[in-house]
Computed example of a mutant assay.
Amino acid sequence: MNITIVAGARPNFMKIAPIIEAIQNKKKEGFNINYRLVHTGQHYDKNLSGTFFEELNIPLPDSNLEVKSGTQAEQTAAIMIGFENELMVNKCDLVMVVGDVTSTMACTIVAKKAGIKVAHVEAGIRSGDMDMPEEINRIVTDSLTDYFFTTSTYANKNLSALGVPESKVFFVGNVMIDTLLKNKSRLAKPSLWDDLNLSEKKYMVMTLHRPSNVDEEQQLKKLITQIVTLGKDYPIIFPVHPRTKKLLSNLNLNFDNLYYVNPLGYLEFNYLVKNALAVITDSGGITEETTVMNVPCITLRDSTERPETCDIGTNILVGSDPEKIKNAFNILLSGTWKQGVTPQLWDGNTAKRIVHHLVSI
């Protein structure tokens, strides 16, 4: 079996690392399974993609489509053209896509039109928010997928409601947690730790990148001002996404406890998360990591495709509602944040289960 694995953006790399390792181990056992890694280049900043290959011991990609940035349509089209050429030259039996980024959807469409079966890792998750490009990517991808690898029973139910046969759905757990658990002992203290005189549970981490939060200047200013004011007794570390950096340069938001830093590598960022009092974010993946690390997480979104992080994890949704944000900070600073539980099968063995099913298929 020859598998083409697609990665395009930062979250993808965390997910493919353990899958590649599991494939390599299966091959050593004598199974006829090979992979080819295609990097679409959707994330092209070194801190957003390149360092992940080094940190997570991922082999360099066999092909890099180097699509870089553009509008949704431009980026999708560039990925599709590049990936079509890739598949014409390098035949495979299966295309594996992960997550819900533009590359996930675009490469799924190309593969299916080329008559190649598709396996989707993280299939079936839904936020219900059609204003999110990721939700559209999920819906399109799952409408074409042949084999669905799911992270939760919520995802299984979503697929069942769509009429997906149970025989095509494999509840395997969360592959991103495989990477987290494997690297937990390797998490690295960033230089800013000593530079800012940080100490365990005495600071917060904030990440923002969703268009609904960062694309309108006054909304972004209002959001950051409230968060920094509520957390005034704590340093707030803000690794700034490239798209957010452009907006911030016009806002002149300077607070004594707010520290803008460049995007961090996987090991350094998760060291900060693990030791933080709390994380304020609009990312879906970070809510999974904070749940496993039992770190309070305040999510600046009205919906989530990962409801397990709220129902049994450490995550609370507040959207951009000032009262909900204030209430979440009150709970946090009073020391009464809920205790989380790790969801089923988030145990570090997801990739092994995926590859076991692949060779069975």
Rank of each mutant, 00 (worst) to 15 (best):
K117P: 07
R243S: 01
H357D: 09
L180G: 01
S49A: 14
I109A: 03
K113I: 04
N275C: 02
L37D: 02
L333S: 14
N183M: 03
T336E: 12
N90P: 02
L247G: 09
K222L: 11
E86S: 05
V341M: 12
I109F: 06
T104C: 12
L358I: 15
P343E: 09
A276T: 05
E289P: 08
E122D: 14
G265W: 00
L277V: 10
N34I: 06
K27V: 02
D215P: 04
H357Q: 15
T104N: 10
I224G: 00
T104Y: 12
D142C: 12
E216G: 04
A77I: 05
N12R: 07
W346V: 04
F149H: 04
P133Y: 01
A155T: 14
L223A: 11
D311V: 09
T150C: 08
G335L: 03
L162H: 13
I331Q: 13
T291E: 06
K326G: 05
A77S: 13
D215V: 07
G285N: 03
K28P: 00
M1F: 10
T207R: 10
V164T: 09
G50D: 08
F31V: 14
S69L: 09
D142E: 15
D131A: 15
S167V: 07
D321Y: 03
M176H: 02
V98T: 09
V172H: 07
A161T: 14
P239F: 00
A111L: 12
D347V: 04
K232G: 11
G8L: 07
K117V: 10
N257S: 08
V118L: 10
Y234T: 10
T304C: 00
L332Q: 10
V292D: 03
G284P: 01
Y259E: 03
S160E: 14
E134Q: 12
V205S: 08
V292F: 04
P242A: 07
Q75V: 10
K46S: 11
T225D: 13
